[in-house]
Amino acid sequence: MPILRIRGLTHYFGGLRAVHDFHLDLEPGELVGIIGPNGAGKTTVFNLITGVYRPTEGEIFFNGHNLVGKRPDQIVSLGIARTFQTIRLFKELTVLDNVRIAHFARTRYGVMSAMFRLPQYVREEAEIRERALELLDLMGLLEQANWVASSLPYGLQRRLEIARALATEPRLLLLDEPAAGMNPGEIADLMELIQWIRRRFDLTILLIEHQMRVVMGICERIKVLDFGETIAEGTPAEIQSNPRVIEAYLGEEAIA
């Protein structure tokens, strides 16, 4: 049974059709890529899945839960986490706090419990602190735990964003152009990291990426969008030889 099931997803911004009739079935443990030229509607699909936008039409089911109409924080607590195309860390907060914030939905203590430091608060806070630091250790960010997030080098900021997403304990991870702005060395590290977290956290991953090296190198299946339409779908090898994909990326003359 697919973990994520999208049927007939369509979204309009005013008169502009950003996504049209998008279908997707993600099996548990898969690593699937979405590619397409700028403005093809890739990030819109992520925003629809995570509840930032409400789709004009269509259904999104995650583990049997209908996601349409749910708030982002509810969707995240069901087990979907994401990163962003442009890094959206809490820049002025510490690395540790960035990760601790992601424990919000799983915290049980109330406001009163926090204000009066009742035992439940003290216990849960100690737990959160320890688990956040363990996760940072796992992701190789422990030494920087007390740094302000914006003072991290770019590559580590990307890594922290992934760590923050993992702290919500997702089943499905959505990565929006994780390799954007990275040099070839960093991209190689990133590919290794993505495959490592997939195994370590038993994740299903959906990935948007422009870097063909990343998509072709680690994705098992690829969907290609252009102007909101799905124009191709298949394994990396199939996609590379698909004339419609080449046309969308390189223009008509290239294949004429």
């Binding site: 959206r88 860390l89 914030i101 923050r164």
Partner: peptide
């Protein structure tokens, strides 16, 4: 810091 990011990490 960032309200959208905040709701997307479960706040």
């Amino acid at each position: 810091e960032d309200e959208i990011a905040s709701s997307l990490v479960s706040v």
